[in-house]
Design a protein around this nucleic acid. Structure first.
Ligand code: DTP
Ligand code: DTP
Ligand code: MG
Ligand code: MG
Ligand code: MG
Ligand code: MG
Lengths: 527, 527
DNA sequence: GGTGCGCTC
DNA sequence: CCAAGAGCGCACC
DNA sequence: ATTCAATTC
DNA sequence: AGATGAATTGAAT
């Protein structure tokens, strides 16, 4: 499991400013976008659907949630039902359209590739984990577990003490951020031709960073390789990234946040938490009215739309943002009953921190929606780690952190690159040098050094390995990074690689180290 | 009935270029838009709903169709139903929201005004007409009418001869035209604050010409007085008209039409028919592909969106445009079966030429949707005029004119003005002079003169009267217009008026008349 | 030909 | 308190 | 301290 | 044929 979000400890990956991801290596020709080749006999593929590898199919569909937006749908349903009853009682009938078709296409197009085989391996590993869990589950599922129920219920009481319903937390997330920024300069991308955005070009088009809502209708999503996106949507317009533009837009947005909460906590270029409790005292607007105002200012400032969630804590606020996603907001009142009503029907996948693997695991344990957590609590307590279990309990109770703070201490820094597969030691060492150089530059600009050096390699089979060494003192120079990384690499040879990366952790500011790299004793240390 | 559209005779009101509607009379202060006064206790009004005056309520709601878009809804239903069945079997329940509420508010706000009383009078008149029809209907409804069936079925055979399925007719209509043009210059109008557009200012805000789709959610429509729109939507942003901008945009759009059909037939600034049969021979694109291309060019040219319908004739094409209205298109294949399937479920109100009165009449005769026309054909034949009946038959059969031609001969020209009520003869004659002057100017610019002069007056009670006189020769000079109009007005005095207008018909070009105003003999006359 | 009405944008 | 303006067609007289 | 897997944007 | 990059956290060893 993960739960890097939502702890007392600071939210993970808070910043990720995605600086200079414009590469200086590799063949930097613009990928020819008119390459509308291989238009895919999609219908043929679609026809022959089989049920085997269903879980793989789902996994291959990528990490994005999709499925169904319960609350938004709920509103739609009531409105539709009203129309139906009011105007005519209608009866219809049809079968599958989108989701399954998209998954099927991705599956067929992927089949056979190294990537595919590696994914199959991972999938099998998950299946193994699940089976192990299930056999434990089988053993206990008929037990009464009265002791466990007591323990858990005490635990819940303790967690309840964490609950703070007095803060008004807002989560704001720009809609299709990079895509929308591009549309500002090229308004024709907004409509009929649907666009999306290439990340990098090694051989082909590379990976997509995001897609506009037009493209999403075709199943085109973040983190999808370009060539698959083109199968799903041959007209797809692909445009290269312009980080500086996104950073500019982000700065404008943040200047608005600043006005409502000077301690606002940015989570990425397009996303932040605000605690508007204090601001509310200065106005007689209601929370949703304030948030409309914020989004309005953002729009006036950038011509970009944002969505927002308003709730008692960060977890709930984030979940609320999803409810009315493009260009909408959702206000969850800080009442126990409202919170329960909101959380219960949601798929556990909507909990931030529950991804596709955790979802599969929990589904196997008959936990599909948040309301399923409570009746299964004793069983989950026995099967999951303490941290994971408490994470789920908090989610089910709608309890989360309310601390919104812009202070941020980086814990690691890294550079990694994918390339056409290499095996020769000289080629590898050459690449490694580039990577070390880039990392050294980054360390320089951030005035950082670190004691733990990590090497990451990805085999051509997509298997990933990491090796690390904690050194006696802090390093930051290119030559040091290269030297220790090379030592780690040496032990892995011979290998055929498609990626290498270097990471430095156990960081500290260079101002704090003496010449030998040993960290000076902090002034405020306790002796 | 009407049926000015869809005949062999040219489509009515083809042009209506809405020239210089910027008034030179009346107090031309900009209406104070911040006048957010009288914010309406809407909920109070809404609470006390009663069923009396239901038809009046509907009438007061204004002429726009609204109700329900069957085909669009059908698609929505099937998709929603799929989601429901696929993800969870849900049951909901709710009551009235929009339509009824809007009608109720309009009704309550209008009640008591002169306008309201006049509308009530008209409504009663329609009720009377319907009752007369119904008593005829009662007498014959149990007859077998076998003769009539035979006659009608022969008529249908004849009409079938008119059917031409070999043309590809496209109807294109810009979305929320004036509103969208304004949004180009003021993009912030696009979203949260909803906008709409004032026509004229006498005392208050005047009439709205159109509203953007945001405003339509509140029930704000074309031809609604501003003060009612503000009750429905107090945040409504009202902006004055800028005809020159709309004309510019229209010209750009038409330049696109020109490329696909040089004989395209504009029906208004934002609307035209094209016959793309010839164009299709020059490409291997399908009709919908060509239309996507057209709409795409329009967008690239103007940044405005258009909707389109593609079908075998003008009537069907126009109906198709409505199916996917904002920014969409619908292609109806030119197959008998498809046409029937398309037409049958539609409300008769969707037939262009069937307005709110005809709808009420037909509903009273148990004709609600187009498919009801056929079984009722003998009855309708006996109750309606030959022209009206044939009009309905054609609509039901999906038969319509395919002639698309830009030639246009104007049949009348007029100027009319509303003002704060006047009664004194001197005031009235003074106004009449202004009107005559404006008409003389228009006649000058179009090089026209005419033989029939009409006076239109609207009493303060909203009762409208027209008087006309056909003169021995053609006139066009301000003094002549004024003289004859004054003679007609004189006979009506004393009256208290809110509008006067002068119309000239039986037109001909000034080049064709001799000095006495008598039309010269046409060169091509047959003797 | 004159008048009223319905329809369209 | 507050409901447009331009144009066309049909029905009836 | 090391490694791997999961998660997020 | 073609499947990112930066960062965090948790679990296991
Ligand atoms: N997997 C990824 N790899 C690289 N960049 C990503 C990835 N996912 C998202 N991003 C970048 C591009 C996005 O525009 C930006 C913000 O992400 P996110 O808020 O999740 O989606 P989005 O803003 O594009 O759409 P939306 O928020 O409307 O769903 O972060
Ligand atoms: N009484 C009226 N009814 C309709 N339109 C009118 C009226 N008076 C003036 N207009 C003008 C304003 C409109 O923008 C323009 C085109 O009308 P129309 O195509 O019916 O609506 P629209 O283009 O505003 O919206 P949409 O076509 O999306 O329904 O004609
Ligand atoms: Mg976003
Ligand atoms: Mg985001
Ligand atoms: Mg329009
Ligand atoms: Mg129109």
């Amino acid at each position: 499991m993960d739960h890097h979000d939502e702890d007392d400890a600071h939210l993970s990956s808070q910043i990720v400013e995605e600086e200079d991801l414009l590469f200086d290596d590799g063949p930097s020709e613009q990928p020819s976008l008119d390459e509308t080749t291989g238009n895919a006999d999609i219908d043929k593929i679609t026809a022959q659907h089989s049920d085997i590898d269903e879980t793989l199919r789902v996994r291959l569909a990528g990490p994005s949630t999709s499925k169904v937006n319960y609350h938004a749908l709920q509103r739609l349903f009531t409105f539709i039902e009203f129309l139906i009853n009011y105007y005519f009682p209608i009866q219809a009938g049809m079968d599958s359209v989108d989701k399954a078709k998209v998954n099927e296409i991705i599956y067929e197009v992927s089949k056979g590739s190294s990537f595919f085989e590696n994914e199959r391996k991972k999938d099998n590993a998950v299946t193994g984990r699940i089976n192990a869990l299930l056999s434990k589950y089988e053993r206990i599922k008929n037990d009464v577990l009265s002791e466990e129920f007591i323990i858990v219920d005490n635990m819940i009481e303790e967690l309840e003490d964490e609950r703070d319903l007095n803060q008004c937390i807002v989560h704001i997330d720009m809609d299709a951020f990079y895509a929308s920024v591009e549309e500002l300069d090229q308004p024709h991308l907004k409509t009929v031709p649907m666009v999306s955005f290439a990340f990098q070009a090694v051989g082909g088009i590379g990976m997509l960073c995001t897609s506009n809502y037009e493209a999403r209708k075709f199943g085109v999503r973040s983190a999808m390789p370009g060539y698959i996106a083109l199968k799903l949507c041959p007209q797809l317009k692909i445009v290269p990234l312009n980080f500086s533009k996104y950073r500019e837009a982000s700065a404008k947005v943040r200047s608005v946040f600043e006005q409502y909460d000077p301690h606002y906590c940015p989570m990425s270029l397009d996303e932040a938490y605000l605690n508007i409790t204090e601001h509310l005292k200065t106005t007689n607007k209601s929370p949703p009215e304030v948030v409309v105002e914020i989004r309005d200012k953002i729009f006036k400032e950038t011509l970009l739309t944002a969505s927002a969630g308003i709730a008692a804590n960060k977890m709930l606020a984030k979940m609320c943002t999803d409810v009315n996603k493009p260009n909408g907001q959702f206000y969850l009142k800080s009442e126990l009953a409202d919170i329960q009503e909101f959380i219960n029907p949601l798929s556990i996948r909507k909990i931030p921190g529950v991804g596709r693997v955790t979802e599969r695991v929990l589904n196997a344990l008959n936990v599909n929606t948040c309301k399923d957590i409570y009746p299964q609590r004793a069983m989950l307590y026995k099967l999951l780690s303490d941290i994971s279990f408490k994470f789920l309990l908090r989610a089910h109770l709608g309890i989360g952190s309310t601390s919104v703070d812009s202070e941020y201490v980086r814990k690691s820094i890294s550079v990694e690159r994918t390339f056409r597969s290499l095996s020769s030691r000289t080629d590898l060492y050459f690449k490694l040098k580039d990577i070390a150089q880039k990392l050294a530059k980054d360390l320089e600009s951030k005035n950082l050094c670190g004691k733990t050096l990590g090497l990451k390699i990805k085999l051509t089979s997509f298997e990933v390995r990491t090796r690390a060494k904690t050194l006696p003192g802090n390093i930051y120079k290119q030559e040091d990074l290269e030297k220790y990384a090379s030592q780690l690499l040496e032990k892995e040879l011979p290998v055929s690689l498609r990626l290498m990366g270097i990471r430095l952790s156990s960081l500290c500011s260079r101002d704090e180290i003496d010449q030998k790299g040993v960290k000076r004793v902090g002034i405020c240390t306790i002796f």
